[in-house]
Design a binder for these strands. Structure first.
Lengths: 362, 362
DNA sequence: TGGCGTTGTTTAAACGTTTACTACAGTCGA
DNA sequence: TCGACTGTAGTAAACGTTTAAACAACGCCA
């Protein structure tokens, strides 16, 4: 008469599959098979087992399951920070798709430090995540690319899959998926919008060499200027990172140095735009009456300040990343390895046409 | 002469601790102990092992580690949604503290659905997370409380720990930690601020019975009104959820029904305030000149719209949750089980004193 | 020289699953 | 009536760690 945790649910040891098997009067293998549902079983046995599971409040041990070879149940995402709306929205997409596929979502943050990024990828490798999704811009020197390529190979070797989300590919022979969105096209489109409404002196906020995202955006900006035959003035490209207070600082310093030598501002992202707008206002300049302002991302701050901006499909980015990675891991099929999602302008109320001297007042 | 993956890192099977042991010429146990660093070892052995680890690019298998009894390396957080700033900031705190403690962070989202919340807790139980942090408000009926209490006990039984973050306790004998912040006090303070500047007709946005957070906030609002001997008018409490568009809708509908019968708006949170502000503006009412507006949370939208609001220590909430849970799990010491973090008003520029007929113009 | 801590290492037994085999009834066609 | 299937269930061997317990080597002291 062995009195185990079976009848007494206050036992100190959590219920295992063995307890369930004993309680239901079947073997451990049967319980495992019935729970995973990947095997025929007699209805009577099935209901006996399910009843035992309910009565003992059994939940499987994910570690054991993972060890024994069943495919992992988790998807990893690595971002700079969770509170940045950009990353949050991609994370939401990842999370949503992961839930749909029955996976858990492990999140790591790096604070933008490449070293922590590497360390986190390593952690995810330990964790045997089914895929590791790396989100966002980053310094992209050769040493970094080289090293990340090694990590990608290590992940592939372990049956996992690296996904680069919103950043460029590592190289031709690196086993990494890429899900990008069209930074250059978006920047080109919105700069063209400003140009076509008559603006010629457009301040670009957030230039940052070697960072992939700002680099692409400024490239689109320059391309549009060139196509409109507007001479390129490096003095209009203000350097700085992509945070709100930076936008504030940039405009403030610029206006402190002298009266505005621009009629429009293209902020590298919406956060920057929000900061810029505040600095403009504090200096007595109204958007869009005195200065036109556009951003990039179409994230929460944009709607609040009526900002014309470029919409980026953040959630779609995250969802696509998960979908591609899982299909890849499952089928090994040679489907798309590189996807580029489109962007488009969202018109709000932050741009006014320039009235040139002598031009008709529309 | 066994030619294993040792020298050829392109082998298909990932490196195990056995490979490392063989490569270093020591036993598996020695490798394990040296890597965990919890045991004395000769420097020579140590360097041999570390070299093997480097050469083979070995990473431990977290599943095996978890199975074999080493304490789990992960902390779970369950939120409504990742893109809501409120949750994002708490999540950031959890993530930060988890990283400090060397833990990974598993995130689950529920979309506010209690059933998904239960399911997710169950998943985290499978995952053997060291603690499960439940964030945010929720319908709080007795059936829910009862069931969640069962889950708390199940987690405790498995050596884990449920933490309720920003929501009230489940009951006296439930093994769950609670980290709250002072909703009532904050709402009381900011309502008092409006009252002391002369406002008497204060519209409350976001009443929602049975949801813990709005309930506490409205309680503070009512208490302040009572203390100022302002008669309670239920018609001033507008029902709705806590989203931006809801704030917009509420004000819009109210103004469509007739001219404003209030001089100030207390929005249940900052998002609501942002929506309300937009609706007011579209109706030709300026904040704060025509209508005063306050919010709750002090999250990103607040600074952008110069909103006077109640600061909630979101990140601190998340960090405290992790810290408490881990101390609890480690020491079993009977330290604090219930912490209430303070809130305070952040003054910006969204409130104007009421000028009463006959009163001095200050 | 034998007994005894120390120090460092090995042996082997868990941990809780999954899954390739194996076993055993029935059923069915020959 | 017998062997070949078919549908279920059981046996036992992984999976890759950790860790208690056993063990070897090495002074050190009596």
């Amino acid at each position: 008469m062995v009195r185990r945790a079976a009848s007494d649910s206050e036992g100190r040891r959590p219920t295992t599959i063995r307890d369930v098997a004993a309680h239901a009067g079947v073997s451990v293998a049967t319980v495992s098979r019935i729970l995973s549902g990947t095997y025929p079983s007699a209805p009577a046995t099935r209901s006996k087992v399910m009843r035992a599971v309910r009565e003992l409040d059994y939940v499987a041990n994910a570690n054991a399951r993972g060890l024994a070879g069943a495919s992992s149940r988790s998807v990893a995402i690595i971002v700079n920070s969770v509170i940045s709306p950009h990353y949050a929205h991609v994370a939401q997409g990842v999370q949503t798709q992961a839930a749909i596929e029955g996976k858990l979502c492990i999140v790591g943050t790096t604070g933008g430090d490449p070293e922590r990024e590497f360390a986190t990828v390593q952690l995810m490798r330990e964790e045997h995540a089914e895929c590791v999704i790396l989100v966002g811009n980053v310094v992209a020197d050769d040493a970094y690319r080289q090293r990340m390529a090694d990590y990608a190979r290590a992940l592939a070797l372990a049956g996992s899959q690296l996904v680069l989300c919103g950043r460029p590919a590592l190289g031709p022979d690196v086993p990494a998926l890429v899900v990008e969105y069209d930074n250059i096209g978006g920047a080109y489109a919105i700069t063209s919008h400003l140009l076509s409404t008559g603006h010629r002196r457009i301040l670009f906020l957030g230039r940052r060499d070697n960072y992939t995202t700002p680099e692409s955006r400024i490239a689109g900006y320059r391309k549009a200027l060139a196509d409109y035959r507007v001479p390129h003035d490096p003095g209009l490209e203000v350097e700085g990172s992509m945070e709100r207070r930076e936008g504030y600082r940039m405009i403030r310093e610029r206006l402190a140095a002298g009266p505005p030598d621009f009629t429009a501002v293209f902020a590298g992202n919406d956060l920057l735009a929000a900061g810029a707008r505040q600095a403009l206002r504090e200096h007595g300049l109204r958007v869009p009456d005195d200065i036109s302002l556009v951003g990039f991302d179409d994230l929460p701050p944009a709607a609040d300040i009526d900002l014309t901006t470029v919409h980026v499909p953040h959630e779609e980015l995250g969802r696509t990343a998960v979908r591609m990675a899982l299909e890849r891991v499952r089928d090994k099929s040679d489907m798309a390895e590189h996807v580029m999602l489109g962007t488009h302008i969202v018109m709000r109320d932050s741009v006014r046409p320039v009235i040139r001297a002598g031009a008709p007042t529309q």
